[in-house]
Design a binder for these strands. Structure first.
Length: 196
DNA sequence: CGTACGATCTGCT
DNA sequence: GCAGATCGTACGA
């Protein structure tokens, strides 16, 4: 059920970003498991992608995580208050990553409500990358950890996603990326067809 | 050391 | 629709 390490080592980061739709993301933090079904992702395609933190081979303390072998988390802090969660993919030294932008909340919902201060359990609880990370309890403490362990992992529960239910659009909040801002690297699952 | 800005969210208009 | 929150990160002096 848990995605095996070789899954993450594929070099096809855009295909993987699409493939992660319909999988289940879980965190086990502070003795509680929280999670849900992945409904929105964005691919960041290595050193040639102007939208990526690793564009042009930029290698710093922050981006170092992306250069590791696929199958670990990349968590970073932005806008002075938000943590964003990524899945590192590809082989070592090739900085591919996939930003998980949204899940549909299913597991540990009471905990996620408490973490976010929200009242209702619905898609709005976890429908943005920073909201999702907050609900799942993800901070920089979870940067660089293995997705094959028992803290953060992704499961394939056999949900088959039909491509008619996947929408592609340009990525969000990357206007600085020039022509790469137009690439259709954002993938959205029409979750209503998959959640009972 | 100083400065500019961000893979966002919320609340108010 | 838009401004404000709020600070780590990157980079140049």
């Amino acid at each position: 059920m848990k995605l095996p390490p070789p899954y993450y080592q594929s070099q096809e980061v855009v295909r993987l970003a699409k493939d992660l739709l319909g999988k289940y993301l879980y965190t086990h933090i502070n003795k509680t498991i929280t999670g849900g079904i992945i409904t929105e992702t964005e691919a960041y395609a290595g050193v040639t992608d102007k939208a990526s933190h690793a564009y042009n081979g930029r290698r710093t303390a922050r981006t170092e995580t992306m250069y590791q072998q696929g199958g670990i988390s990349y968590v970073y802090f932005t806008y002075g208050m938000h943590h964003l969660f990524n899945v590192v993919t590809g082989k070592k030294e090739v900085p591919h990553a996939i930003l998980i932008r949204a899940i549909y909340p299913l597991t540990g919902c009471e905990t996620m409500l408490k973490r976010t201060g929200k009242q209702k359990i619905n898609y709005q609880l976890t429908n943005g990358p920073a909201k999702m990370a907050k609900a799942l309890g993800i901070t920089k403490k979870q940067n660089g950890i293995s997705l094959s362990g028992n803290l953060i992992w992704i499961e394939d529960k056999g949900v088959s996603v039909h491509k008619n239910h996947i929408k592609s659009t340009p990525r969000i909040g990357i206007d600085y990326a020039g022509e790469d801002a137009l690439l259709p690297y954002r993938f959205i699952l029409d979750y209503k067809n998959y959640i009972s």
